[in-house]
């Protein structure tokens, strides 16, 4: 037990929690926006892969780091647009289209990687985002190194939650978005376009997912690996459910989840790690996600029109 306490009182543990949570926060916010507007986006896993690849390759070919973020966002929005066209105006099965987008985005990233770097055996590296010290805050004892010695994208992730929450709950656009996920007919009656709102939500949400993927390659690590997203997208879908479709609670879920993940990585290096096979530790995130889904199943306030396509003029 004392080992766990030692880990919990170290600043590096909390710094790792924020770092691990960052890609999840971006992608969870992206998925949350899609689902609040009534569209389940199972393309998330593949869109994170394309974000990770395109952001990285942009920086590798000479763009600045923020340029890489922008390229990732645009690539994500591109695949998001495809998802949006197929599921919103055409109303195709969101399950099938989502899986299709994940397959397409993942294989496109792998194809482009092989094409642009045919000869490499070990993935080349870039110079990733470095931690930024915030004057005053970063000098605080414990809190400074724990919370305020992060790369810019991590601060940006928290800012994203704030903006998403403000827009969803404090603006007419947010009201329309939430309404279109609950009762699209009523939104239509207000003279707003259900199609435009939903497509916009899916496209923008997909952009955020891709930024989450790009965090992995240009902030957390410095290379692109195959299978580096490794189910994070599916975990984010579970986090949206766990957060009951609320940005602040989803943020809490992502942090809680990251804390468990950071803890298991550190536990592997203690006496525990020699007793228990490492695969058990690696299973924890997936098992936790399933437990979170079970825990929330009884009181989930699912958007009423989630996965229900809307066809104008049809009752």
């Amino acid at each position: 037990m004392s080992e766990i306490v030692d880990i919990l009182i170290s600043a590096s543990f909390w710094a790792a929690v924020l770092r691990i949570a960052s890609p999840l926060i971006f992608a969870t916010m992206g998925e949350l926006i899609c689902e609040r507007a009534g569209v389940l986006n199972l393309g998330i896993e593949g869109i994170m892969v394309i974000g990770a690849f395109s952001g990285w390759i942009a920086v590798y070919s000479g763009l600045p780091l923020w340029g890489g973020v922008a390229v990732a966002m645009l690539a994500g929005m591109g695949f998001g647009a495809l998802h949006a066209v197929l599921t919103v105006p055409f109303g195709l099965s969101q399950h099938v289209v989502g899986i299709g987008i994940t397959l397409l985005a993942t294989s496109s990233a792998y194809y482009a990687y092989r094409l642009s770097l045919p000869q490499v055996t070990s993935p080349p590296r870039i110079e990733p985002f470095q931690p930024v010290q915030i004057p005053g805050l970063s000098d605080l004892p414990f809190v400074g190194p724990a919370l305020f010695s992060q790369t810019p994208l991590t601060y940006f992730a928290f800012l994203t939650v704030l903006v998403v929450a403000l827009v969803l709950y404090r603006t007419p656009l947010g009201l329309a978005l939430r309404a279109v996920g609950e009762n699209p007919g009523a939104v239509e009656a207000q003279g707003l376009s259900v199609t435009a709102l939903r497509m916009g939500a899916v496209i923008f949400g997909s952009g955020l997912m891709a930024v989450g993927g790009a965090f992995l390659t240009i902030s957390a690590f410095s290379s692109f690996f195959f299978e580096m997203v490794n189910g994070r997208g599916w975990i984010c879908i579970a986090l949206v459910v766990f957060g009951a479709w609320s940005p602040s609670r989803a943020l809490l879920g992502a942090l809680l989840f990251a804390a468990f993940d950071a803890l298991q990585i550190r536990l592997q290096q203690t006496g525990f790690g020699t007793l228990v096979p490492y695969q058990v530790f690696l299973m924890i995130p997936y098992v936790l996600s399933i437990l979170a889904l079970i825990l929330m199943s009884r009181r989930a306030n699912v958007p009423a029109a989630l996965m229900v396509p809307y066809n104008r003029g049809e009752r």
Binding site: N230, G231, W234, I235, I237, A238, Y286, S289, I290, L293
Partner: peptide, 10 residues
């Protein structure tokens, strides 16, 4: 959908 996907990794 999510549980069956997560089971693949487990």
């Amino acid at each position: 959908v999510v549980t069956t996907l997560l089971f693949n990794f487990i």
